[in-house]
Nucleic acid binder design. Sequence first.
DNA 1: ACATATAATGTAATCGATTACAAATTCGCC
DNA 2: GGCGAATTTGTAATCGATTACATTATATGT
Lengths: 330, 330
Amino acid sequence: MARISDVAKHAGVSVATVSRVLAGQPGVSDAARERVLVSVKALDYHPDLAARRLRSGKTDTLGLVVADIRNPYFTEISRAIEDVAYANGMRVLLCNSDEDAEKERFYLDMLRDENVAGVILSPTLSLLSRFRACDYSFPVVLVDRCAPETEADAVVLDNIDAAQRLMRHLIERSSQRIALFYGTASATGLQRLEGYHSALAAAGLTPQTRAIRPTTTEARAALIEHLREHPLPDAVVASSGLILLGLVEALREAGLRCPDDILLAGFDDQPWTRIVTPDITVIAQPTADIGRSAIELLLARIAQPEQAMRRIVLRGELITRASTSRPIQE
Amino acid sequence: MARISDVAKHAGVSVATVSRVLAGQPGVSDAARERVLVSVKALDYHPDLAARRLRSGKTDTLGLVVADIRNPYFTEISRAIEDVAYANGMRVLLCNSDEDAEKERFYLDMLRDENVAGVILSPTLSLLSRFRACDYSFPVVLVDRCAPETEADAVVLDNIDAAQRLMRHLIERSSQRIALFYGTASATGLQRLEGYHSALAAAGLTPQTRAIRPTTTEARAALIEHLREHPLPDAVVASSGLILLGLVEALREAGLRCPDDILLAGFDDQPWTRIVTPDITVIAQPTADIGRSAIELLLARIAQPEQAMRRIVLRGELITRASTSRPIQE
DNA sequence: ACATATAATGTAATCGATTACAAATTCGCC
DNA sequence: GGCGAATTTGTAATCGATTACATTATATGT
């Protein structure tokens, strides 16, 4: 492997000149620059990144900490982030916290050891409750989850509004008893619960909720149990795509038909929600935008560490489908 | 930030002793070791990884290059790989090639610059055709795609066998005209095509295939066109999960019912294949095992660079569901 | 032509660890 | 007590880049 000194020797200049050429700095004659570039090609020189990072103190590396990359919502976000990162000459270390505060701390510590330039984080509930951006040695942008009072750059959906709109959609279709299955592991689930409560209260309806861990299997078991123990609801709603899938499985198993026996709706416009029978009414999240906004926020913060905190709130889109198709009541 | 010299001073020893303690090397008195560990705690010392990597020439970093992390097959594999990697104190840089040989080369070059300890790669067709592990400065393990003659560690499904079994399943159910929609971008699609051809030839049936780029939208368009231009097949088969989704959309749009009008089957047991109506017969791939095997192979190769190449061939599992439920013919 | 400003180049210190080698200490045993 | 071996410890070189500072070459103005 060629080192910078080899290039310098080959080009008949000093290492400083080589370094300046490669860094695109001014103060190098065209002749010297030309010779250096030729030598770099000739020797197939590639700078040692470890040395560069040691000297410069910068790593060109970002961290991304999500609950689980297998959740299509995070998959999509992660892809958008990585594309932008690589396009800007940065790398991304992906970490899965599994909603586990301990794992989350492990990964955040690791990212600090890596001296990352910044981190995009979807925090566990436990961390979010005491989160302060200033507690970290690197800039942090929160994604998907954020409390109203959190002092941090963030990109989130307006969960309360989205949940309210979804509920009003159901209420207009004469649903009286709407059961919500929501994930307790994240702030997102709780905010959607809040929107649900306020919409039902506004309509004078009694809420009916089940708090669960946000997994498909747990959602399925919860609905099956719910159906056994309660009179049939008019509608069931999932606070996330994973939960929605569990509800579909359970309804199928129970032999209930949508929208005739019961209405069904949820969050996350995953591809399969279009092709099941019936296709399902959902709140679609602009996942690619969320990811892109998050990394743009992070890159801006890295460039300008002292600028004011920014929060980007995106609006969910209500996609009406057959699972809630029923005449609208006045 | 505390440096190793600070720890040495605080503990009243030399930097060499501190380094030895931290590396777990022998030849340090218990008293000194104790004092060092206390000082490390007291100063909250964390070694500078850039410096360590510069000096040691090792990076503890792996590369993972897949076509697209949004493909659930790769999502699953990637998660398994990352879990094992972090458990072994390594990091993973994830790269999406989008089946584009140029992007692939860009990322492989970047990983070389990063001086990664090894790479797990699902190669594009173009790269696979001329792939030689010895062309790279780091060990490479192929995953998902591999040619019979490729000289490389690899973890793959027995695609020919799996496709044959799937075809026999359909043929036994009296399908005469079986249309295969296969992805041309990867070796995997072509191997499944091969299995399809041999199974149909053995049964004396005429093949009916459409080569497409492996995306849902393209698959959907292809089937719609196919139905317009050809007499109705007895069965349609997808060579991957993404394609299968497109076929489902198209059948729905055409108003065709499974299994009454036509049989349907494919690859990849994605969660939604269980909940659509009808649920779909598929070849399930042991994705978690594939990922785990791949990184275990890679770690072994890193530890033992000279050992013989190993290829792990896994068997797909045929999961029979309603989309192919029809009486078996003698 | 000379003084001075400006541009180009080079030398050597530096980042923070690891480790070869040398030096110092301790130990066992006669 | 003293000698050699084994253990412990320290000093300084090293990894490969960046960059402050010094120096030399060129340009400008009168």
